[in-house]
């Protein structure tokens, strides 16, 4: 279990204070209006943003003092997931050693991961020769070789066509089952999120506004959630 205890941060003029829990082995959808602080929360977890105060506990251990590379997370961003000058193999291999000095079994692991995301045999190609979907698959392969328990997805498929997006979502679901991954997913499409996520964390008013099971989320009659879902008029 990942616990946030009054984790405070400020971004520009906005103040945030997050308290909540994220359950292990499940997929939690992070929802909220744009600018509500979803990405800030994700950045706090990954360590790209330092909290002003509060505790961030994973299995009882404080994470806030650790560098991003030491934390149990691996991230998939919306874009710039790959280095354009490195081929797919090297881009994935960077997840195992930042200087690309790989042991023979690590080389195998990279090849295997590329196969698992459907890019087997394409290790020598450059990102520029790939489609948007293939690039995100490569980033996913790197996430797999890193063997971190948590996967943070920051709208990674929003730039893809609907069909491709479906495909990527089901690929992520399969990999989640296979590797027992815990996932935090930021998305702006509630319908899509609920297909994949069993849990929902709703961010509003500078903090975690509501947290619960996905199927209960749509029944909420709280004003911010109703407005977010577009159920109120005026």
């Amino acid at each position: 279990m990942l616990e946030l205890k009054r984790v405070q941060a400020s971004q520009g003029r906005n103040q945030f204070c997050f308290t909540g829990t994220l359950s292990q082995g499940k997929c939690t959808a992070l929802m909220g209006a744009s600018g509500a602080g979803k990405t800030t929360l994700l950045n706090l977890l990954a360590g790209f943003v330092m909290p002003d105060s509060g505790q961030l506990l994973w299995q009882g251990q404080e994470l806030a003092t650790l560098s991003p590379a030491q934390r149990p997370f691996t991230s998939l961003f919306q874009e710039h997931n790959l280095f354009a000058h490195l081929n797919l193999f090297d881009n994935v291999g960077l997840g195992l050693h930042p200087g690309l000095r790989l042991l023979p079994e690590q080389v195998e692991a990279v090849d295997l991961a590329l196969q698992q995301v459907g890019l087997g045999g394409m290790g020598q190609r450059l990102p520029s020769s790939l489609s948007g979907g293939q690039r995100q698959r490569t980033a996913l392969a790197r996430a797999l070789v890193r063997r971190q328990p948590w996967l943070l997805l920051d709208e990674p498929f929003s730039a893809l066509d609907p069909g491709l997006r479906q495909e990527m979502m089901s690929l992520v679901s399969d990999l989640q089952q296979q590797y027992q991954l815990s996932i935090v997913l930021v998305t702006h499409d509630p319908q899509e999120a609920l297909k994949m996520a069993s849990e929902v964390m709703f961010i509003a008013e500078g903090g975690v506004y509501w947290q619960g099971h996905g199927n209960e989320f749509l029944q909420q009659i709280n004003e911010p959630i109703q407005r977010y879902l577009g159920h109120t008029t005026g």
Binding site: A46, G47, F48, S67, P68, A69, F73, T74, S75, F77, H80, N81, F83, A84, H85, L86, D90, L94, G95, P98, G99, L100, R146
Partner: peptide
């Protein structure tokens, strides 16, 4: 701007960052 988050999350820093990322680009 483009690669800082990725580099920190993969622990690519110092010499490795220079050789793998900054020099080629």
């Amino acid at each position: 701007r483009q690669h800082d988050r990725l580099c920190t999350s993969l622990d690519i820093s110092g010499w490795h960052r220079l050789r793998q990322i900054e020099w080629p680009l």
